[in-house]
Design a protein around this nucleic acid. Structure first.
Lengths: 333, 333
DNA sequence: TTGTAAGCGTTATCAG
DNA sequence: CTGATAACGCTTACAA
């Protein structure tokens, strides 16, 4: 690349305005110790030459990149996009850039993202990836990169986390349901390799059922909603009823649609509960009862926590955010 | 930050392994001209010390950041997330990092993103933001940053673009509809400040109606689907029929739901057409007739084009991608 | 094959 | 208030 040759440097600005590098640097950093006269002179030259400081060089010189590394799975789920939006919004407000690392649901890939986070010299990192365990995170923090982990309880010297409260709510709702409806045999929809949140809620689901001495079943479903829809059209040829707990809105909707399209009524015959609710829970018909966490807030919060952590001022290293249960049309009272 | 003090540098690796900086550099860059013996020796030290090269310093020295800047609006629409996923996937494959700049639907904000793209010294940029016009883009390219623009026809020395083909398809479908159904007065749903794609399709819509000498109307709706839903519940108290063209699935779904919940039948009484279809077009009931473009492919393609552009080998500077019309349940034959 | 030394574009510490 | 000059961590001719 011949970018270099073309790029105007601070040196040229200095020469053109007849001052030293140091002075130009002071001007662009809005520091004091510069006469109004020289400041204006330099500013004029900067405008004329179209000079833009190199973030790279600045970062190297100050040892601050004002960048945060964000590691998230590449799935285009709405809730992940929301987290990212929250992060970006606060990052911008705080004048930080974002280096984005999207992982592809493999441990290998997540680890390589970690490597990149380290070499890319970010000032801090936000990790929202279920492949990464505590030891992987500590790899990052051992390089003195303050890190906030979302959806995994990890604490440490330079590390804080945000954990989601879905299980408690699920236990509560499920218990109420089972106590009210003595015939119901609930079905948990297991999606292969869908991370620790699913695993935890599945565990909670099973523990409630066992605790109440009730039958239950766990069904494997595909992560694609269209495939799940087809599978359940088949399923509803044999089964005419069910209480389903699904991971995401689109899975829940697929089941609800399969039921409806099979002539079953929701929620009279079939009930569906969605764990991670999004705005689509309101758009589908029937609307989906679901547990909601404002994912944009999660993103925002993670940056706030990171900023505190970077100043070594993070008091509460673990921030727990509870989901809110919203009953909608897909379940009975 | 005391990162600096702690970070292992190439210099320390050199000293610890008794070779020069240059040799270490050769080792980490997998260059030849190093004896197997010294290579191993150095590698061992690198492992022992946990040395990771600083991407910053490398970028500065080589004048290559191997980073692409991505500017997209912060809306958490599914299709934007898909574009981003496509970009990220190919970027990773090509060993490029991503600097993400999310804009907030204001010109000011978009311009500041442009500034940041320039100072952040990326090797190339992908811009998908309707606030930015040709002159703003040229600001970037004038700094020798090759740029691919999505959804805006911009060409130039270091610039290529991807444009969406929605209008042609819309004209076709709308014309057919109007010719078949002589009574229909189509309604276009205008969302304030929703970018040039909406503006272009609105123009196409109007031109078709005028061309066929037919009545039509343009209705302002809110960008939030829940508000739109409420507005249309009101609307359907007076109107019992309509042929609606909406910008996105969630808007279209809101109208379809309002109609259904008002006791109207779709598509017998009310028809709805969605311009930008996503997977949710299949999940709602009725399913939504819509125009589809694989946004992940758009993202991927943009990176491929950018890579070519960076090598000055981009042949077709404008890549047009046509939408595919998919008739579903929300419109009649 | 290896080492020396001069960059890369900034900032920051001193003197002046 | 301003200017030299040495960092920052790495690459890369050029020499050896």
């Amino acid at each position: 690349m011949e970018n270099l040759k073309e790029r105007v440097t601070i040196y040229e600005v200095a020469k053109a305005s007849g001052v030293s590098l140091a002075t130009v640097s002071r001007v662009i950093n809005h520091q004091g110790n510069v006469t109004e006269a020289t400041r204006e002179k330099v500013q004029a030259v900067i405008q004329r030459l179209g000079y833009k400081p190199s973030g790279l060089a600045q970062a190297l010189a100050t040892n601050k990149s004002t960048t945060i590394g964000v590691v998230i799975p590449k799935a285009n789920y709405v809730y992940i996009a929301s987290v990212l939006n929250g992060i970006a919004e606060v990052a911008k407000e705080k004048n930080f850039l974002i280096s984005l690392f999207l992982t592809s649901h493999s441990k290998q890939d997540a680890l390589s993202a970690v490597e990149k986070v380290i070499t890319s010299h970010v000032d801090g990192a936000i990790i929202f990836d279920d492949e990464l365990e505590e030891e992987d995170i500590s790899k990052i923090t051992s390089y003195y990169v303050p890190t906030i982990v979302i959806n995994n309880r990890v604490e440490g010297e330079r590390c804080g986390c945000i954990v989601f409260g879905y299980e408690g709510n699920l236990r509560k709702i499920l218990t109420e349901k089972l106590n009210k409806d003595k015939d119901a045999t609930p079905v948990f929809l297991h999606v292969h390799d869908c991370g620790r949140l699913l695993a935890r809620t599945e565990k909670a689901f099973i523990s409630v059922c066992k605790g109440l001495n009730r039958n239950y079943s766990v069904l494997n479903v595909d992560d694609s909603s269209s495939r799940t829809y087809e599978d359940f059209v088949e399923y509803f040829k044999k089964h005419k009823t069910g209480y389903f707990v699904a991971y995401r809105d689109s899975i829940a909707a697929a089941i609800a649609n399969a039921a409806t399209d099979s002539g079953l009524r929701i929620p009279e015959d079939v009930e569906v509960l969605s764990l991670i609710g999004t705005k689509y829970a309101n758009i589908t018909r029937p609307t989906l009862s679901s547990f909601n966490i404002n994912m944009q807030d999660v993103g925002k919060r993670s940056v706030y926590m990171l900023m505190d952590l970077m100043k070594n001022e993070l008091e509460k290293k673990t921030y727990r955010i509870e989901s809110v249960y919203k009953k909608r049309g897909s379940t009975r009272e």
